[in-house]
Design a binder for these strands. Structure first.
Length: 374
DNA sequence: TTGGCCCCTGAATG
DNA sequence: ACATTCAGGGGCC
């Protein structure tokens, strides 16, 4: 009922058409310069800050960072931040002082989990193979990205089993996306009903198909294969029903990018392990882990943590695994393996949590002041 | 900003 | 054996 009210994708669609071409690359460079600048221990600390800020190009830095903003507005606080220990690598996430999971810990977790659950299967990349020529593989890859996106949308709010069935059922009923777009919504809903939220998902999928056809004359997402990571994220999240986790999955599974999707299992285990503060939300966890987990471990670690989260009595939600156990949890050893460092990490986690609370207080004070002023 | 809501499956509980 | 309850799953408002 509620979901049907938004039959107009136009607002979002319009908003999105503007981030194309070069902007992403520029922002990247600016960001890198900023970070390099901040990391430099040299004495030139006071001379900067204006030039970058006034850069006319970077008018709207859209989303990242939120609590740091509060600190930066206060010059004194900004100084203190500058003096605080800075990680060796540039860090733009929400928990700068939290160094876990270390690369070694990630590696150990991956290896331990792989020993328990087996080595993750890496999907063969469907790249246009020059030797293969233009054959059916190519035709298949035409819709591969869109398939992956729809598959992931269908997996939202439901288990693997039912979402696979829903996707198969949809494909069976409507072999091409054009047919899905033309079909009455009721028929599409019937095809995916077993996955849950059929009305909502149908509306969202059709909106995507319709937008693609309208904008590009072709119901395909293959064009994002060549785009930069940030551009892909902008391009996909503009669609209603496509959030960060869905995009990360498409990018990691289908496009082989170095993404680390944070689903409910990864989120829960990350908190339990102290890799993020216990009160971290999913988005902050995503941003932290995508920096801390080494790129070459992200795929394996994601797949293994999800599997582990379903099977391990210790790591499953409420201690109730949904699938049969494969054995003792290898993650237990990680926390105890480096005692001195561990204490430090725990302290850091607490410190981060405290920082967050303090920031909240500051924010509230600011808000109160604003309200009083107005 | 947070948490309630969306809805079907299948396991758990009565 | 059947009926009922409830967790799971991500995004939106």
């Amino acid at each position: 009922m509620k979901g049907t009210g938004g039959a107009q994708p136009s607002a979002r669609t319009l908003r999105a058409t503007r981030h194309n071409e070069n902007s992403g690359a520029n922002e990247e460079h600016i960001k890198e310069e900023e970070e390099a600048d901040r990391d430099a221990p040299g004495p030139l600390t006071t001379s900067r800050k204006q030039p970058v800020k006034e850069e006319p190009k970077a008018e709207t830095p859209p989303k990242p960072r939120k609590r740091q903003k509060v600190k930066k507005e206060d010059p004194v606080a900004a100084q203190m931040v500058k003096l605080a220990p800075v990680p060796p690598t540039a860090y733009t996430g929400p928990f700068p002082k939290l160094m876990r999971p270390s690369p070694e810990e990630c590696r150990a977790a991956r290896d331990g989990l792989a020993r328990l659950h087996g080595e993750p299967e890496h999907a063969k990349q469907i790249k246009p193979d020059p030797e293969a020529g233009a054959d059916s593989l190519h035709t298949h890859s035409q819709q591969q990205v869109l398939d992956s996106l729809v598959r992931t949308i269908l997996s939202q709010n439901t288990t693997d089993n039912t979402s696979h069935r829903a996707f198969a059922s949809l494909k069976g009923a409507f072999p091409t996306w054009e047919e899905v777009l033309q079909a009455p919504s009721g028929k599409v809903e019937d095809a995916i009903r077993m996955g849950g939220l059929a009305e909502i998902k149908t509306e969202r999928i059709k909106a995507i198909l319709s937008t693609l056809k309208q904008e590009r004359g072709k119901i395909s997402l293959e064009y994002i294969r060549d785009m930069e990571d940030d551009d892909i994220k902008n391009e996909l999240t503009r669609f209603k029903g496509v959030g960060p986790k869905t995009v990360a999955c498409v990018m990691m599974f289908c496009l082989a990018r170095d993404e680390f999707p944070v689903d409910t299992h990864v989120w829960r285990i990350s908190k339990n392990m102290g890799w993020v503060p216990a009160k971290a939300n999913r988005d902050d966890t995503y941003r932290h882990m995508n920096i801390r987990v080494p790129a070459d471990l992200r795929y394996d670690l994601h797949v293994l943590l999800v599997e582990h989260g379903k099977r391990c009595a210790r790591c499953a939600k409420n201690g109730k695994p949904r699938k049969e156990s494969h054995g003792d949890c290898p993650l237990v050893n990680l926390q105890g393996s480096a005692p001195a460092k561990d204490l430090l990490d725990e302290d850091i986690v607490k410190e981060e949590a405290k920082d967050m609370e303090e920031d909240d207080i500051v924010k509230q004070e600011v808000k109160v002041k604003e309200e009083v002023a107005s």
